[in-house]
Computed example of a mutant assay.
Amino acid sequence: MRAGPPPVAASIGRSPTVALLDEVQRQKARGVDVLNLSGGEPDFPTPAHVVDAAVEALRSGLTHYTPSRGIPRLREAIAAKLLRDNGIVADPGTDIIVTPSAKHAAYIALAGVIGPGDEVLLPSPAWVSYAPMITLLGGRPVDVPLDPRDNFTISAEQLASAVTPRTRAILLNSPNNPTGRMLTATEADAVARVADRYDLVVLADEIYEYIRYGDRPHLSLAARPGCEGRTLTVNGFSKSYAMTGWRLGYVTGPAAVMREVVKVQEHTVGCAASFVQHGALAALADETRGCVEEMVARYDDRRRLLVAGLNRIPGVSCADPEGAFYVLPDVSGLGFGSAQECAAWLIDRTGVVVTPGSAFGPTAEQHVRLSFAASTDILTTAVERLENALRQRAPGPAAS
């Protein structure tokens, strides 16, 4: 091929979580007994009424292009959901775009607000794809390291100290992947104060909104004083409704910004799949979210099992996640040189696949992420393998 400057894609690496999933599939194809706790995919089936609605749409011939913003009925349903559950007022005609995945929603939202050289504050640990998205768009991700000793708490001082004349936005995720933390009112107000003071856009990823434990309410930044009118909210159906393969999300924000965002949708994917949108309509029609609550109750049982099991292992400290379906235990007491080394050792010695915390930023270097979106049997077996192997391992970097 003709020599030239490297393509934009050369500036980023592969997704660590997708790469792990590929490796798991290769190992399983070779007959290796692998227990995969690295992925972020619900192991439940998509609710039957959602499947039925999509099948009916297919049989009815609803298989053609839709408006780029999404079918009007779905945007109206999303607007009603946003008002009811989040306190967000959104005009379905101008403020909402339905996208093929929440990941694409995050990407086009960023494309609508940043340009080359613009900086985006990224409190970390943070999901693995945020920084590469910013880089692909010519922006600069600015890591705002959160202290694990303080339970990864966000403060206005931390955010403000990272602001420069090039700062354009703050991107954050609650409930958080990978920590499982949920924004407190104090943290949400801190974000709002900094955004208002420096005139920043806020990008709020709320994909795990319904997967939370205990009584703490989910706080939507777009509904906070100081953030209204400057926040783009990303959400979707993959996690809460076990619809990962359906690839459907949405983004909502001020009409003036969404006029720019929709251009990216039009020139990349055009629109989300028509029949999938009809499945989402059925999902939102059940305002009680009974199927979601049933899944969350099962996740809660698994969460307790995994946290208790990990905390039995000497050298491991695991906090209770407040939302999502991940734990991020501190493994510094095991004596490995890095999270990467720990994860590699665990795969080799136990067949349990975890994600190195370093994939989510330097503040998680001494952590690994495990997903409890797996059956109780798999989690029980994984904990037994981990506990047996790690108790037998002599601590220290030189151990093998």
Rank of each mutant, 00 (worst) to 15 (best):
R247D: 14
G249R: 03
M258G: 03
G270E: 07
R259E: 15
V261D: 07
G279Q: 08
G270H: 04
E266D: 15
G236M: 05
H267W: 09
V276F: 09
V251G: 07
Q277S: 06
L248Y: 10
V262P: 01
F237I: 05
R259G: 12
G245K: 07
M258D: 00
E260P: 04
Q265Y: 03
E266Y: 01
T252M: 11
V262L: 08
V251R: 06
A273P: 00
L248W: 05
W246L: 04
T244D: 14
Q265R: 02
A255H: 13
S274L: 04
Y250D: 04
R259H: 08
Y241P: 01
C271P: 00
F237V: 05
K239L: 15
A242K: 11
Y250L: 07
V269P: 00
A272N: 01
G245W: 08
H267F: 09
G270T: 02
K263H: 12
S238N: 11
G236H: 05
A256N: 15
G236I: 05
W246I: 03
V269E: 00
M243W: 11
C271I: 01
G245M: 06
A242E: 09
V264A: 13
E266H: 06
E260T: 14
C271S: 12
R259A: 15
A255C: 08
V251N: 10
G253N: 13
S238V: 03
H267V: 10
Y241R: 04
Q277E: 11
L248S: 13
A272M: 01
G245T: 08
V257P: 05
H278S: 00
G245P: 01
V257S: 08
R259V: 02
V269L: 00
Y250N: 06
V261Y: 09
Y241S: 00
C271E: 00
C271G: 02
F237L: 04
H267S: 13
V276G: 01
Y250R: 08
A242W: 11
K239G: 06
E266G: 02
G253T: 08
Y250C: 06
G236E: 04
V276T: 13
V269I: 06
G253D: 13
M258K: 02
V269M: 01
T244C: 12
A255V: 11
W246K: 08
R247I: 05
G236R: 02
K263S: 07
S240T: 10
V262T: 03
A272S: 10
T268F: 10
V264Y: 12
